[in-house]
């Protein structure tokens, strides 16, 4: 008897900024929505984030970045995910990211970016709508 798959989301902070208020609030909201959240802590390199995403076989990576390094770190993580065969793992994120950078990053393949003021309800709904997995076991991959 197969058990329904469950959303598995990696929540990560990459780079050197220590602002973890947002990532913790979102992690708790995803948990309360019934998802499995793997939080990797502060100050991670893109390589560490991607290795964790692959080993943990998550459906999506949520990256929080308030350091201004978004134009460096998001593309690097996208590249590494593809290199490691995880191109189908969704990358979304949040932080202080100017509008035109949001557009550029989305064109590169970042699935969604939440800027200050986004509600956790919106984020949970977005994950439910865009992560393909849970309708059937291991589906969509």
């Amino acid at each position: 008897m197969a058990q329904q798959g469950r959303y598995r989301i990696l929540m990560a902070k990459a780079g050197l900024d220590g602002h973890d208020r947002g990532v913790k609030v979102v992690s708790r909201a995803l948990r309360d929505a019934g998802m499995e959240v793997i939080y990797t802590g502060l100050h991670q390199t893109p390589e560490q984030v991607v290795r964790a995403a692959i080993d943990e076989d998550v459906d999506a990576v949520g990256l929080s970045l308030l350091s201004g390094a978004h134009m460096t770190i998001f593309p690097r993580i996208l590249d590494l995910l593809r290199q490691e065969g995880g191109g189908d793992i969704l990358l979304f994120g949040g932080g202080t990211i100017p509008e035109d950078d949001v557009l550029t990053l989305k064109q590169m393949g970042v699935a969604e970016l939440f800027t200050p003021g986004a509600s956790t309800v919106d984020i949970v709904d977005w994950v439910r709508a865009h992560v393909g997995r849970p309708t059937e076991a291991s589906a969509g991959r």
Binding site: L16, S67, G68, T72, I73
Partner: peptide, 18 residues
């Protein structure tokens, strides 16, 4: 703030940003 020089790999993308 973290005690890294600008040429350290961990500083990538963050030099002079905030």
């Amino acid at each position: 703030l973290m005690g890294f020089d600008s040429d350290d790999p961990r500083s990538l993308g963050e030099v002079g940003r905030t």
